Amino acid sequence: MMTDPAPEPQPTPRSQRTALLVIGVVGVLVLGFAIGVLARFPFDDSGPAAPGEDSVDVGFAQDMSVHHSQAVEMSAAVLSSEDGHVRSLAYDILTTQQHQLGQMQAWLTLWGQPPLPTGAGFMEWMADDSGSHAHGGVQGAAPAADGALDRMPGMASSDEMAQLRQATGPEQDVLFLQLMLRHHEGGLPMMEYGAQHASESVVRSLAQTMVDTQESESVLMRDMLAARGAEPLPMN
């Protein structure tokens, strides 16, 4: 007697949410790239030359791409948090910064520049009040020996990222808030400098948007930490 074939396993709600999230993140990145292309499309060859490799615009786009990439990675680690407030914040940060990352990578492509920094350190495009580089004493810091990009202000170390991925429950929620708050505040000088000194209006506009958004999120994360009886981390 023939038997009916076993029914195929149905996707769980969690797996469906994960799949939809992946599709959404990819869509956000593609959309950001498209917007970046359209915002700087060279309709007129007689227009101003593209920013050079030593410009504020290129340095900002490259270094902030590195900074944003880690924020996206941190946010993805807590998207399954049982805390709805943490989960919502992580989703907002992930989608917003992935979109902005797409815009910055589009500009770098159009300008014929590498997608990531190629020099010995970070933030060398920022000048102090005297006009020299190494603003704030953090420029020129090279990646750590293990390849971790943990020398830029606010960046989490490899060990901290591993701790975040391995933590669970409220412990993970608090660690995420601490790391992301430090991450936001560490990147603020770059955003402010880009908003003031970039030559391209679209770069200045995006940098100012980052300042406004991340300052607001920083206030929120400080409140969320206080509500959970936790303190912010000192700047690294």
Rank of each mutant, 00 (worst) to 15 (best):
L94R: 10
G36P: 12
G84E: 09
G137I: 06
V78S: 04
E53P: 14
A120P: 11
G59P: 08
D54H: 10
S81V: 12
L116K: 04
P117S: 08
D57E: 13
S80L: 12
F60W: 11
A144I: 00
Q97M: 13
G137Y: 05
V58I: 09
D54V: 04
V56A: 05
S55G: 03
A61Y: 11
G36E: 12
E124R: 07
P117F: 02
G131Y: 10
Q70G: 02
T118G: 10
A134G: 01
T118E: 10
H99Q: 13
V86K: 04
A120E: 13
P51L: 12
F122A: 07
G140D: 06
V56Y: 01
L108Q: 14
E53R: 15
A50T: 09
S75L: 02
E73Y: 01
W111D: 05
H133D: 05
Q139C: 09
L89S: 01
Q70V: 06
E73M: 00
G137V: 05
Q62H: 08
Q113S: 03
A39T: 14
V138Y: 00
R87Y: 04
L38M: 15
A144W: 02
Q113H: 02
G121L: 01
L108I: 07
A77R: 07
E82T: 13
W111G: 10
A134C: 06
A77S: 14
F43Y: 15
H135A: 15
S81F: 02
P117G: 00
G147M: 01
R40P: 03
Q98G: 10
E53M: 11
V86M: 04
P42W: 07
V56Q: 05
A148G: 12
Q139F: 00
V78N: 04
L94V: 00
M64F: 11
Y91M: 12
P114A: 05
Q139H: 04
G59M: 08
A145M: 13
D44A: 15
D146F: 13
D129N: 04
M126R: 07
S65K: 01
F60Q: 04
D54Y: 00
V86D: 00
S88L: 12
T96G: 01
S81R: 01
M123Q: 08
V56K: 08
A120H: 08
D54E: 13
A77C: 08
F60R: 04
T118P: 00
V86E: 03
A50Y: 09
S46K: 11
G131S: 04
Q105K: 09
G59K: 02
M104W: 05
D92I: 12
A71D: 02
E53L: 10
A77D: 13
F43N: 15
W107Q: 06
L101K: 10
A61V: 02
G102L: 15
L38T: 10
A39V: 07
Q103N: 05
